[in-house]
C-alpha cells in the first residue's frame, strides 16, 4: 500500500492511531513517521549503554527493527512513549548482559569483593557533589560495564535488587561492581 504522506494527516496523528494503522497495513513509510518522532530519544538511551557511537547506532537500528515486528503487542494500556521507553530499556539491558557476561567471573569477583569492601565506600553525597560537565567527560572514559551500572543506579533510580534481576547476576556481585564503578568514576573525575 502506497501512502501519500503529504496529502494525509498522518504526520499529525497521535502515536497510538499511527501504531494501529501500521499494524493493519504493515506500511513502512508510516513507520518512518514513528521513527522520526522517537529515533533521537532511543539513540540517546542507547548511548548510555553502549561503549561507542557505532554500537549505539547498531542498538538503535535493532530497537526499531524489533519494534516494527512487535508493534502489535502494544495494547494501548500506557502511552506509546512510555511503552517504547521500556522496550528500548529492555533491549539495552539484554545487550548489557552480553557485555557483562564476557567479563563475568563470579568466584573471582567474590574474592575481589572482600578486598574491595575493605576500602572506604564512596557515598552518594560524594557522587552527587560531582559537576555535570566533568562527570559526563569521565563517563566517556570509563568501561562500558561500569557505566551501565552507574547509569542504572543513579540515572534510572534502579535498586541493587532490580539491577541484579535485570542483569541476571547476584546482588553481592552488583554491589561489588557498583562499589568499583564509583571508585573508578571518582578516580577518572579527579584526574581530569
Amino acid at each position: 500500500m502506497k501512502v501519500n504522506l503529504q496529502n494525509n494527516n498522518f504526520t499529525t496523528m497521535t502515536d497510538e492511531d499511527l501504531v494501529q494503522m501500521i499494524v493493519h497495513s504493515g506500511n513502512t513509510s508510516l513507520f518512518g513517521i514513528l521513527y522520526d518522532r522517537y529515533a533521537q530519544k532511543v539513540y540517546s538511551k542507547c548511548l548510555g549503554f553502549a561503549e561507542s557511537r557505532d554500537v549505539a547506532e547498531d542498538l538503535t537500528q535493532d530497537v526499531f527493527v524489533k519494534l516494527y515486528l512487535n508493534l502489535k503487542k502494544f495494547r494501548g494500556e500506557s502511552k506509546f512513549s512510555t511503552w517504547l521507553y521500556s522496550f528500548t530499556y529492555n533491549h539495552c539491558v539484554n545487550y548489557s548482559k552480553l557485555v557483562l557476561k564476557k567479563r563475568r567471573r563470579e568466584e573471582d569477583l567474590n574474592e575481589e569483593y572482600q578486598d574491595l569492601m575493605a576500602d572506604e565506600e564512596i557515598t552518594d553525597e560524594e557522587i552527587f557533589a560531582l559537576s555535570v560537565g566533568k562527570l559526563q567527560e569521565a563517563l566517556g572514559q570509563i568501561d562500558a560495564e561500569d557505566k551501565i551500572i552507574l547509569l542504572m543506579k543513579y540515572q534510572d533510580d534502579k535498586s541493587i535488587k532490580e539491577i541484579a534481576q535485570m542483569l541476571e547476576m547476584g546482588e553481592s556481585a552488583i554491589k561489588m561492581r557498583l562499589h568499583r564503578a564509583k571508585k573508578k568514576i571518582v578516580e577518572i573525575y579527579n584526574s581530569l
Binding site: G32, Q40, I127, L135
Partner: peptide
C-alpha cells in the same frame, strides 16, 4: 548530576 546529563549527540540520518 546524573539526571542532568544530556546526550546531545545527533543520530546520523542514514540510520533511517
Amino acid at each position: 548530576p546524573f539526571k542532568k546529563i544530556l546526550q546531545d549527540e545527533k543520530l546520523p540520518v542514514y540510520i533511517k
